[in-house]
């Protein structure tokens, strides 16, 4: 699985890095540090990634299932 943040939609609520602190962190302005980027989600972080996506008030996070 990969997690992607849409930088045009993210406004820095901070819910994602709060509920998934081992997966995501913030930048100096308080936005998630991977705006307009995607990262690989390790197997033990899948629940955290799903929580982050579902907690985003802007619906800025997309989860992409990868082909095996």
């Amino acid at each position: 699985m990969r997690l992607r943040v849409d930088g045009d939609v993210c406004t820095g609520h901070g819910r994602c890095y709060t509920v998934a602190p081992d997966l995501l962190t913030y930048d100096d302005e308080g936005f998630v540090s991977i705006r307009d980027e995607s990262i690989a989600v390790a197997a033990d972080q899948i629940k955290a990634a799903e929580d982050a996506a579902a907690s985003c008030p802007e619906e800025a996070i997309t989860l992409i299932e990868e082909e095996e």
């Binding site: 406004t11 579902a54 907690s55 008030p57 802007e58």
Partner: peptide
């Protein structure tokens, strides 16, 4: 779980 709200507004 997965709380989100507009108590801090939404958008820009």
């Amino acid at each position: 779980e997965r709380i989100h709200h507009m108590g801090f507004a939404n958008g820009p």
